Computed example of a mutant assay.
Amino acid sequence: MLRDAVSNIIKLHTSLQMRTDARIRDFPLMQSPVQMTSILLAYVFFSVYVGPRLMANRKPFRLNIAMIVYNLSMVSLNAYLVYEFMMSGWGTTYTWRCDLIDTSNSPEALRMVNVAWWFYFSKYVELLDTVFFVLRKKQSQITFLHVFHHSFMPWCWWWGVTLTPVGGMGSFHAMVNSAVHVIMYFYYGLSAAGPRFQKYLWWKKYLTAIQLSQFILVSIHISQYYFMEKCDYQVPLWIHLIWMHGVFFFLLFSNFWIQAYIRGKRLPASEDKPKLNGSASEHITVVANGKHLENGNAHHHTNGKIVMGKVKEI
């Protein structure tokens, strides 16, 4: 029995290697699903169990400078991704309709392979969002939606770039996601910089709308496939999965919108207790990826327990 199981695993691994796009096969973290699955399982375990318990009896770290550097670095990385996606086809040769995958080794096709991997890798860098929350004892911000979104995206993209040659209309959602993250991380960077930047954050209420808009845009774009008279996209399964992904996350984020902005269940109440320096506590808002947008000095939980979607009433 054990021998058969091992044999089947080896066959699956060999099959994956044979099906993997040869142009991306030798990139880091692309050799086996075991590597990326292990990293993501460790991330979830740290987020919901190890991290909160390690910080339970410790004071929260003040990481404002690190957060500013991190967020602005993510702005630069995502801006680079948008530019490379545009130069790899979306701003040059693609029609924005039935764009097939270029499986050649042309400079443009290889550029698309490279930017697709960097997009995939950026999802691991984004796991630091949660690490900052844990170290600053912001457990209420580590919701189910936050953890699921951060772990599900890189896991799906590994299978996407492994089983599907990179490029074509299936890469549109990655470019849109990168563009949205330029805006979001720019906001987070300003927010972490302190109260002197609050006057520049008047547009915070539009962040959730921007996130919802990306899922609508991606779903509409990929839905063209079902209404075209003919589109010979090489891996139709990837089209179906992207459409389901867009609709699924639109529903999740819409539920967040309803809970946060209509029913008011996810917006923590502002407290009037003075801080040690005598200033009043500052307002916190939330966007749909489960992050509380703050200036770095908001209140935190001290019991070390993670709150997976549980929220305060106001």
Rank of each mutant, 00 (worst) to 15 (best):
5 A>V: 14
6 V>N: 13
7 S>L: 13
9 I>H: 11
18 M>Y: 15
18 M>W: 13
24 I>W: 01
30 M>F: 02
35 Q>S: 15
37 T>R: 04
46 F>Q: 08
50 V>T: 11
59 K>G: 03
59 K>P: 11
63 L>A: 03
65 I>P: 13
74 M>F: 11
84 E>W: 10
91 G>M: 02
93 T>L: 05
96 W>P: 02
98 C>P: 01
102 D>G: 01
108 E>A: 09
111 R>L: 06
116 A>P: 05
116 A>E: 09
121 F>Q: 09
121 F>N: 12
124 Y>C: 04
131 V>P: 02
131 V>Q: 08
133 F>N: 11
133 F>V: 05
134 V>N: 04
139 Q>A: 10
141 Q>Y: 08
148 F>K: 07
148 F>H: 06
149 H>T: 00
150 H>C: 04
151 S>D: 03
153 M>N: 13
155 W>A: 00
157 W>C: 05
158 W>K: 03
161 V>C: 07
161 V>A: 06
168 G>R: 01
169 M>D: 01
176 V>L: 09
183 I>G: 03
188 Y>F: 04
193 A>H: 04
196 R>G: 15
215 F>S: 10
218 V>M: 11
221 H>Y: 13
223 S>V: 07
224 Q>I: 08
225 Y>V: 07
230 K>Q: 11
235 V>G: 02
252 L>E: 09
252 L>Q: 10
253 F>R: 00
254 S>C: 08
255 N>Q: 10
259 Q>S: 07
261 Y>T: 03
264 G>V: 07
268 P>R: 01
297 N>F: 14
306 I>W: 13
309 G>H: 10
